[in-house]
Amino acid sequence: MSTGLNDSEIISKVLTGDQQAYAELVTRYQNYVFTLAFRFTKNREDAEEVSQDIFVKAYRALADFKGNSKFSTWLYTIVNNTCITFLRKKKLQTHSLDKEGVFEVADSQDSGLRANQVEQKSKVAMVNNAIKMLGADDAEIITLFYKSEQSLEEIAQILGLETNTAKVRLHRARTRLKEKMQQHFSEEVKDIYN
């Protein structure tokens, strides 16, 4: 149930000892955090575990949130760091932007997706599946820009980059997504463009 309070008001309540108020923040951001974690882990169980870990870390560090940025920007910084640590632990490659191999890795991780392509005709399902086929870096930046209401400046802050670098990364990620859609969902793409 929504309390109608903004993030800063909820944080103040939590910091003064109302632990239950934190549930509102979790409910508010769980889908965003889970989606970002899922883009990294490519696995629902791992994404759930990582997301839980992220919210616990955010709670523990809440006193460090100074309100200089949006709470979501601060939270996504924790998401980014936790997911990178998770991938390192799992000894998976964090996909570098300039490596072509990223597509093959993403493909092999999501081989099950293609089996469902024929049935998944809707545009939304197609774009979601295409995003899943991207490398973690690309999928993350696209999700941050389109779904997490973050500006390019905020994305740069989350990823620890210059704004221009974040902009270039976003362009490249979208280009790769377009290629993915044309490569794996050519029929649906034709329907959309015609």
């Binding site: 989606t35 629902r44 545009k123 939304v124 774009v127 389109y146 779904k147 979208r174 997504l177």
Partner: peptide, 13 residues
């Protein structure tokens, strides 16, 4: 592509 991306959905835990 832009409008497709805006229509993408969030995953739910």
């Amino acid at each position: 592509v832009n409008s497709l991306l805006q229509s993408s959905e969030l995953e739910e835990p």
